Structure formats: C-alpha cells, structure tokens
Deep mutational scan, measured.
Amino acid sequence: EPLWIRPDAPSRCTWQLGRPASESPHHHTAPAKSPKILPDILKKIGDTPMVRINKIGKKFGLKCELLAKCEFFNAGGSVKDRISLRMIEDAERDGTLKPGDTIIEPTSGNTGIGLALAAAVRGYRCIIVMPEKMSSEKVDVLRALGAEIVRTPTNARFDSPESHVGVAWRLKNEIPNSHILDQYRNASNPLAHYDTTADEILQQCDGKLDMLVASVGTGGTITGIARKLKEKCPGCRIIGVDPEGSILAEPEELNQTEQTTYEVEGIGYDFIPTVLDRTVVDKWFKSNDEEAFTFARMLIAQEGLLCGGSAGSTVAVAVKAAQELQEGQRCVVILPDSVRNYMTKFLSDRWMLQKGFLKEEDLTEKKPWWWHLRVQELGLSAPLTVLPTITCGHTIEILREKGFDQAPVVDEAGVILGMVTLGNMLSSLLAGKVQPSDQVGKVIYKQFKQIRLTDTLGRLSHILEMDHFALVVHEQIQYHSTGKSSQRQMVFGVVTAIDLLNFVAAQERDQK
C-alpha cells in the first residue's frame, strides 16, 4: 500500500453525458421521505430548503428570480454533511469501515464536522487534520463531537509532509485500522450531490432553472449537481466560483495573481482535486475576500440567511453572472454553511477592521482624538531585521541585547519573508524542534498583521487588541530589464502597544 495517494490523481470516472444510468458502476440512493420521529440526527441530513432572495437581486438590477439552496440546514450545519454520511455509508457497505475503526480526514473543517457527527452516532474514533487558518468555532464544535484535532501550517503546499493532507496520511500509516475516506478522491463525494442535492433542486424548481452558481473546494458539490442538471435540464448554465489565490478556475489566465492566501474558508485549493470535473462548468468567476464577507453580511442583514463567507462569494458572483438572465428565468445559488463557524471572524466588526474589510468610518461609535491620525505620526525608528541564514542562537542574543521581542526576517534585497519572535524561538528550542545552530528560517511564521503608514491609529489599535505587534510595510514598484514591473513589500518598522501608548501619553502631556 502506498504511503500516500495524491489528492489530485487523474480521475478514473467514466461518467458521460447521455450515458444510461443503468451502466453506472456505483451504488445510487434515492431521496427517502422522513418519518415524523427521526431514529437519529443523521436522518436530518439532506432535504434542505430552497429560499427566495428578495432584496439583493433587485438591489443589483437582476431581472431573474434568485433562489438560495440553504445547505446550513443540514444536521452539522453545512453541505459537507451529505458527503460525510455518504462516504461512511459506502465504506461500511463495501466492508472497508468496521466497528471500532478510526476515521482520519484532512479538511478545512466542515467535512470534519460532518464526519465527527456521523462518527459520534456510529461509534468510530475520528481524527481531523486541518490548517491553522480555520476558525476556532470549527475546532470547538469538533472537540465537542469527540474528534481529535491536529493543526497544520496554512501556507504548507498540499504535497508537503507538513500539509493537512501529508499529516493525515502519516497518521494513517501509524494508526492500525485507520482510514482516510479522502473527500478529494472519493466518488461518494460527487455521488452524494448527484443522487440527492441535484434531485432536490430539480424537484423544488419543478425542473425549471436557467443558471446554477456554486463555490468550489473539493469540487464534489458542483460536479455532482452539474452532471445531473446537464442530464435533466441541459439549458442550465453552470457557474463556478473560485477565490483569488486558488488555481481551480479555467482558463488558467484567471488564476494569475501574486496573491497566495485568502481568508474565506472551505473553497479554493492549490491543486485540482480528483473529484472535480471542470468540463461540466460553463464559466468560472474569481471572487475576493472583501466581496465575500460584504455579501455574507448582506445576506444575514437583508435576507435573514445566517450563512458563512463562501455563501457571500457565491452570491457576489451570482449578481454578476445572472445579469444575462431575463424576467421569468431563474438562478439558484448554493449557500454551503452557517455563520456559526465564523462568529469571531467576519461577523465581528473588530475582525473586519483588522483585516481591512471594514473602515473605521463605517462604525458610528465615538472615537478618541488620536483615532484618525496616521501611523506615520508615530515617528517610528528604523527596524531591526535579520536574514533567514542567521542562526536561532545568534538571533536570540541580538533580540535580548537590543531589547526586542520580535524581528522581521528579510532577504538580501529587503523583501519581507516573515517574522521571528523570542517566545516562538525559545519554545521551539525547548520542544526540540530546532537547535541553536539551525537557521532562523526554520522558525519563520507568517501569521502576523501588516499595516501601512497611511493607515489610521484606530486601525492599529484594533490590531493591537488581539496581537502583540504589527509590521509596518510599504510597497515598492521595481522595474526589470524586460520592461515588466513587480510590486514588493518592504519593512518600514515594527509597532507595539507600548509605542502607541507612549505616543498618546506624550501628545497629551505636551497639550497640557
């Protein structure tokens, strides 16, 4: 057995438009009618409502009807409940999964919650491996369901041993009777949507819809739904939504950006999952974080739909894509998950301010006199920076000697690579993860907040409520011999709460 199987392995699926269902090699399930009293909570997966979006479509000038398939009504709160249950049931049916076995899954959280929910009911041990950027709410729900959680670096490539995929496979090879159901490759993922989600949409719309818009992560949702719609409703256009920084969209030119990270969760990847059939997507749109969270908040405030950030991405694209539809036509959007997962993220004004998705003037509360002053007023001194090749031991000596707790790590040209902190280095040394002679590049981390000289002290204040420091950066445009230009970030300084307090105190003292 291989040590790991690539999540982007070539698909062996034989589905073709027009091929009889009787030739399918898979076990198919028909939607079942729910009894009045459910035998367990797993029976509350599927049969989610279709809700008309009344205000947002009109606000953006849509002539067509805009409908939302509300997947956050599933038992675990997301569309991923469907595939989690289906993968477990299919693994039980073919004898792969037996009582007492362990389920391991690399996930952005929602599939993990679905699997942990099913594992709690069915009696399996469950280990979820997820990147650090995923919300604390997801972690809390997983723990409450009895799952064990392993976190991995957000910026690790999918084929790196440190990625959530790599760590999951390492655990599988170490733990007896453990299984990775593997949402990236498992046919049960798109089949769950082909058999149930798509049929529900067709039934709820009486077979009449002209466009379907869905955000894409593993691709199982859009693949399964689109294949069924292509068979039953061939005139329906399928629109895929991919965040900026991901590479799922086609044509490839759409993916060209210097951005590699994004805040919206559960969609987009740096590889093409095996289950994603991009041939059934008629057109791709890219979405960005700001519009995703703005539209998610709009869905909550104006439509009462308590959905997550990827739902915002989907609707932001839908109001663009559906401009081509006329009166009497219908566009369906998939709202994948609930706001429950993001209470401390985009639902929080403070978080939105820190990330730059909300401006101070958007909030009406009274601010102190210094709130709208610029960061450049602080008069920061030149920063202490270190090269990635310097040793951890030497870096600790320098920081202690100069009285700093942290320093930016830059390359020879001064471009920011990340940050090192005294606390992080000492804990890594004590844990045996690094040696004093190791290069400081081994303990770089990139989960820090950046701020510009033109940003306000109010925004800085919000950042420092949650973080010990902020890195002050400025952009530099560099022209190359080819005539092309590129933008790079340079370090201007490091600012802490002490710097802000000293500035405010000094100004008030001078005024007296």
Rank of each mutant, 00 (worst) to 15 (best):
F293V: 04
T257G: 10
G308D: 01
I239C: 02
K367W: 15
E365Q: 13
L417H: 15
T454Y: 09
N288D: 11
D349S: 11
D411Y: 13
M298S: 01
W369N: 06
Q450K: 14
Q487R: 15
P336V: 02
L363I: 11
L380R: 15
T260I: 11
L305C: 06
P273D: 06
V319P: 04
S486F: 14
D270R: 04
V280D: 06
V434I: 13
V319D: 03
N341S: 05
D277K: 06
I300L: 06
G432S: 09
H394C: 04
S485Y: 13
G309C: 00
G304R: 03
A301E: 10
L335M: 11
R374C: 13
V241R: 00
F295R: 04
F285S: 12
W370A: 05
E465A: 08
N341P: 01
H480A: 15
V264A: 07
Q447N: 15
I398V: 08
S428G: 12
K367G: 14
L500N: 00
R400C: 15
D362Q: 10
M425Q: 12
S310G: 02
D411P: 15
L276Y: 03
K283C: 14
D337C: 03
D411A: 14
V339W: 06
P436L: 14
V504T: 15
D510H: 13
L387Q: 13
I334P: 00
V440D: 06
L276V: 08
L335G: 00
L305W: 00
E377N: 04
R488C: 04
P383T: 10
A470N: 06
G441E: 12
A316V: 06
G266N: 02
L299C: 05
G312S: 01
A505D: 11
G304H: 02
D289W: 01
K442F: 15
G414W: 08
V415L: 14
L460H: 05
T421Q: 12
V332L: 15
L363Y: 03
K286D: 00
A249Y: 05
L387W: 13
A301P: 03
L335A: 04
G304L: 03
M343N: 05
K449F: 09
N424W: 11
E360A: 13
N341I: 00
P383H: 09
S246Y: 01
F346R: 04
A321E: 12
L422F: 14
L254M: 11
